[in-house]
Amino acid sequence: MDVTSAFAEAFSLITRLDTGFLAIVGLSLRVTFTAVALAALVGLPLGAWLAMTRFPGRSVLVVAINALMGLPPVVAGLIVFLMLSRSGPLGGWGLLFTPAAMVMAQTLLVLPIVVSLTRATLEELWTEYRDHLTSLGLTGHRAIPTLLWDGRFALATGLLAGFGRASAEVGAVLMVGGNIAHYTRTMTTAIALETSKGDLPLALGLGIVLMTLTLAINAAAYAASRIGARYAG
């Protein structure tokens, strides 16, 4: 199969909204959205708490979380795999080879980004806002809502970066999801599988969707930072 006809078929898959194709795209988006949402639910408060609290060992924790931003995806996958395997501590949950397992692996990848970025953003804002907020009686955890809201554009950019990292990842979701057809097959694992089968059109089609998605994420991040810049003056 030559590359030109592969491209032609790839576009046809996309334009005729092939159901199998859409299911894969849909699952990928659902898993990654969920992972980013969970990471935000946990990471925003955690990052905010880290920004506003001082305790012994805090710097060690901050450095550790920063380092986790570079956690190799396959290691995240391995951790989740070992936890969820029937022979592992959480084996009783029966979650290995399910979308939930993929959500967990991706959450693990995105969480350090969210925590780290939230902490840095809020610390910077706090330096600027400290006098005013203290004057209003908003200190410690009472300052957090204001800081989160005023850091919303930077934080949105961070969440988008997390989304990008999670959606483009293949190693971890392959390991814990098992690439089961119609169930845990995502865009990235399908690309890996279809390439190995030599079925290039589907791989290419999914690749094009992934690229478009990445482009959209970056456009959104750019827009967020532009709007943010407007408000930041």
Partner: peptide
């Protein structure tokens, strides 16, 4: 003066909410 990253009105409303 610390200007929050919000509108002029929201800056005032925020302070009022705070107290």
């Amino acid at each position: 003066p610390v200007m929050l990253r919000r509108s002029v009105r929201e800056n005032i409303v925020h302070a009022l909410n705070a107290v």
